[in-house]
Amino acid sequence: MRDIIESLSRALFLILNLDGELRDIILLSLRVSGSALLVASAAGLPVAVIMAFGRFPLRGLFVNILNTFMGLPPVVVGLFAYLLLSRSGPLGFLALLYTPTAMIIAQAILALPIVASLSHSALVSVDPIITQAATTLGATPFQVSMAVIREARYGIMSGIMAAFGRVMAEVGAILIVGGNIAGYTRVMTTTIALETDRGNFTLALALGIILLALSMMITLVLNGIRKKERVEPQR
């Protein structure tokens, strides 16, 4: 028990002093996960819009596949990305394995179905009366779609934040494709795993506290978004 308290107090000291190594790890984590989220949003939102407004065969099947992919195991994504990026893989010539870019690709694959699926849900749950109201006011089909997207904005933002929470906390995929190289591809979650193995709980605990604080911030933002989304009852 005394060891835990001692490690905890040292961890707090590290956080308060914003230790250089700690800071670099946090910044790399935010850069990798933030970039992955940007890529996933740029690709996932159009997918959600096509699924919501498009009329094409097997659309229901595609939606089901998208929903299933929300629960992709990170290690499987890591393995898939590794096979793609390894020297003998189809993208091996890019020499991206064990780089932050490889980690971004793996996390983007993880985040994309979450962004697309939750955004799709938000879009299809917009009251059809909104579509009719926009149409009767003279909106073109494109303007109607934009009005629906605007109505679903809080749901879409919730999806993006949920995806951010998922990629920030994952370890399996980035460990496989990033290699956990100190000062280069070592992020918060992989550092916690490594330092715990080594018995160096101080850094692991410091990063754990920061990760928890980030999760809490994401939850607060999500709650704020949901509060805005909620429609007050009619008087």
């Binding site: 009366i129 909104i130 009719q132 109201a133 009005a147 605007r150 109505e151 989304e229």
Partner: peptide
């Protein structure tokens, strides 16, 4: 104008 107007958020 529809009976349930369809107010935008």
């Amino acid at each position: 104008v529809l009976p349930q107007v369809g107010i935008f958020n």
